[in-house]
Write a protein that binds this DNA or RNA. Sequence first.
DNA 1: GGCTATTTATCACAGGCGTGATAAATTGTC
DNA 2: GACAATTTATCACGCCTGTGATAAATAGCC
Lengths: 201, 201
Amino acid sequence: MPARIDPEQRRGHVVEAAFRLVVAEGIDGLSLRKVAAESGLNIGSVRHYFDGHEDLLAAAAEEAGDRMGRRLARRPVEGLRGLTGAAALDALQALVEEVLPVDDERRAESIVVLELILAARTRPVFRPISERMAADLGQVVLDALAALGVRDPEAGAAQITALIGGLTLDTVTPHGSLSVEQLRATLRAHLGTLLSRDREE
Amino acid sequence: MPARIDPEQRRGHVVEAAFRLVVAEGIDGLSLRKVAAESGLNIGSVRHYFDGHEDLLAAAAEEAGDRMGRRLARRPVEGLRGLTGAAALDALQALVEEVLPVDDERRAESIVVLELILAARTRPVFRPISERMAADLGQVVLDALAALGVRDPEAGAAQITALIGGLTLDTVTPHGSLSVEQLRATLRAHLGTLLSRDREE
DNA sequence: GGCTATTTATCACAGGCGTGATAAATTGTC
DNA sequence: GACAATTTATCACGCCTGTGATAAATAGCC
């Protein structure tokens, strides 16, 4: 019984091809035939690893969610506990930048996530992953603010998560043409006022 | 030479039908046949008023941009000049809420604009309108902050426009499920710190 | 009433899509 | 080398799409 190729690896390659297509043409530009061509496989091969279109979409969304979860896990909240001043600001900024399009890799992931979130509005397939990502991000930001001793961390977290969405939107789409430097500066300004405001009271 | 129906009005009705479809199914759910059905017309009739698919999309985008422009024009920046304290905060909040999904009508328009902005990333048709809307909004916010005497209005405007995008995203899509009350509170908290921070220095 | 331009309604075509079904090739094991 | 399971490659079908072309109906004007 031949198994010269690792199925999981194959699925991974296909999903990566799907990501590239989403970045290039948007989530509605995905089709089994295009994904097959992009991944260098035959349509029949793609369909052998994914039950169909819906299944491929779900797998791609799952992978996007996992990647975001891994990014968030890379900055354990415990490392923030007790930090103050510039150290606190730097640590918080680094945490948030983990999920912001500050380099090519994160830019691609941000595009996929953004397309996914918007698509979840009308396509039930994406809803669970979309909601899970939002919950994960919200919890991490909330825990981070709590670890830093910020007053009213819920309100602060709401501001930060909203800012993350807006900054991603402005950076990734051409309508705002926000540069990475501007993104970083705007985020830092916001986080700075949020932390300093808390210290004063 | 008969003209029992006003062509402009007809186009308007068709565009409104297109808006309803975008809200219901997303911008890629648009098709000439669906728009015709939604507007109660025949495909041939729709095609008589719009050269084709692309033309319909462009007209819908144009209308969306015009509506946003009209909303922004409803709150002349001159009215903000010299305001301080709670009055300044209220006025600024009212201005920004003009383009936020705080009621059904603005929610629908926000969805259309959001779909349009994201679609502009891969579809050149939407680019000019998308960029125009961003420029208009940015200018209005910038002027408003300048009229209120905020220090570094550029930075503040960048934060506010980003927040607008993020709040819209969180409210309109199911991933964050931000309620209108939360949206208002988050916006107010941000605007409050932005104004108060300026006063202290 | 008849003329004419506008508006509406169809038909047909090519292209892309997801999908079911099935044949062919490949490769490790015996 | 032969067997068998996995993997790959095609074919065909129905559906939906945009679009060009064209016929039919409508309604104002003389």
